[in-house]
Design a binder for these strands. Structure first.
Lengths: 236, 236
DNA sequence: CGCGTGGTTGAGAACGGTCAATCTAAGTGG
DNA sequence: CCACTTAGATTGACCGTTCTCAACCACGCG
């Protein structure tokens, strides 16, 4: 029992497999040492549980170590709007920095394990770690690039959106060292459709269509990419 | 002549009317003094000219002092996609921070005058001005909030999008001290439609429709809001 | 004052949404 | 271990919003 705990404690920023993707990327070795001391590690949420809620005060940046989540907001009718999916190794919480209160709710799509960098520590770290704020600024601005991608996506046809969704998930998983051709979609058709701005029936139909064209093989949540070239052709 | 130059030089961060909106917001008086020394002021671009191009190296953050601009990207067919409009007092350039090269092109919609905070100075300033990076981070993260708004907008009907567009421009102008009920749209119907993801004919039709309902009065580029309540009703 | 760009208006077509029925997979309890 | 249950996924039919294409108009510039 205490052995298990020790084993988990042994995972620090220095030896974490997210090192190249998480906050430490861009920091010097010695600075990573500082970081590991203040990161609140090994937080757990079960499927459906929130990591943080919209409106709650901003408490810090979160790094997903395992599992995936959805980042959502609500329109004026109270309907959930899925702003983004978060895959392992990705950071979240930037929606709280601007107003010091979260603009979105983050909900686990399956059991997740995450690290948490508390606000006070961000301030403290940035004082004696010059590169630290730069890394954070860089990360938050990369959201801007993602936003551009999203705007472009919202102009394309339903087919192009689903194709882009598959490609994006594939590439993000590849970055993390997972297979980029065969994976499990942790979100429902409803959630995919919500995120892409199309009806869930349309998602189903297009998956079916892509399968008929031998582009992918879909069995409920399992997805296998058979023909990347054809899939890219649908990005238009 | 030299008087004119002196007069222009006299506009510094300390007495600029953008003080409450620009980078200095959130900085101490003394820090603003540091800022004014490094800001490259009084840059001009004519309508159609670029402030920066996609792909060019990131050289710093830009603050629009007067005039407006469009921030655009290109889809894979080379079509312009207008990511955002920039009104006076707003910052731009964050699309270059993440990769140190601009992801978007910024083009003047009319004659613009802007300040420029060079990259090197950002680094220098952040060293002896602890709050500086925080302000930048906050500003860049507010892009995230805007992104959420944009995603929600892309789900709504063409009518709701046009209504939201009018409301947004109105509120942003109000923030700057301009009239929020009567103003000039510096962008074409084509550009509005492009930005909102609808055909320019649809923009025209909806403007016409809103006018028929006595919500607005439109004469080409001049727009007057007659009934804010009704307009808000269309935001759904 | 004519020309051209940008804006308006109309008609038809298409894409995707909605509603409804059915199917399937993953639990759940006997 | 199997029947039962239920939420999610699929499929079909129909309908509506918005796009596209095309013609026409008007404002501003030379």
């Amino acid at each position: 029992m205490s052995n298990t705990l020790l084993a988990k404690s042994a995972i620090t920023c220095e030896n974490c497999n997210l090192e190249r993707l998480c906050i430490p990327k861009g920091l010097k070795r010695s600075d990573i040492g500082d970081l590991k001391l203040v990161v609140n590690r090994n937080n757990i949420r079960q499927k459906g549980e929130a990591i943080y809620h919209a409106g709650s005060p901003f408490r810090g940046i979160v790094a997903l170590r395992s599992g995936s989540a959805k980042l959502l907001s609500f329109d004026r009718n109270g309907n959930e709007v899925i702003v983004d999916f978060i895959l392992p190794g990705e950071l979240l919480g930037f929606d709280g920095v601007s107003l010091q209160a979260h603009n979105c709710t983050a909900v686990a799509l399956e059991t997740v394990n995450f690290c948490h960098l508390p606000t006070q520590q961000i301030a403290a770290l940035s004082a004696n770690t010059p590169g630290f704020y730069q890394v954070l600024l860089q990360r938050s601005c990369s959201q801007f690039d993602a936003q551009v991608e999203k705007v472009m996506l919202s102009r394309r046809s339903a087919e192009a959106r689903v194709a882009a969704f598959i490609v994006q998930i594939s590439e993000r998983l590849k970055l993390r060292g997972y297979s980029d051709t065969e994976f499990r979609l942790s979100m429902s058709r409803e959630e995919i459709g919500n995120h892409l701005g199309i009806a869930h029936e349309t998602v189903s139909r297009i998956f079916h269509h892509f399968q008929a064209l031998d582009i992918v093989e879909v069995r409920t949540k399992r997805l296998k990419i058979l023909d990347k070239k054809k899939l890219f052709g649908f990005l238009h």
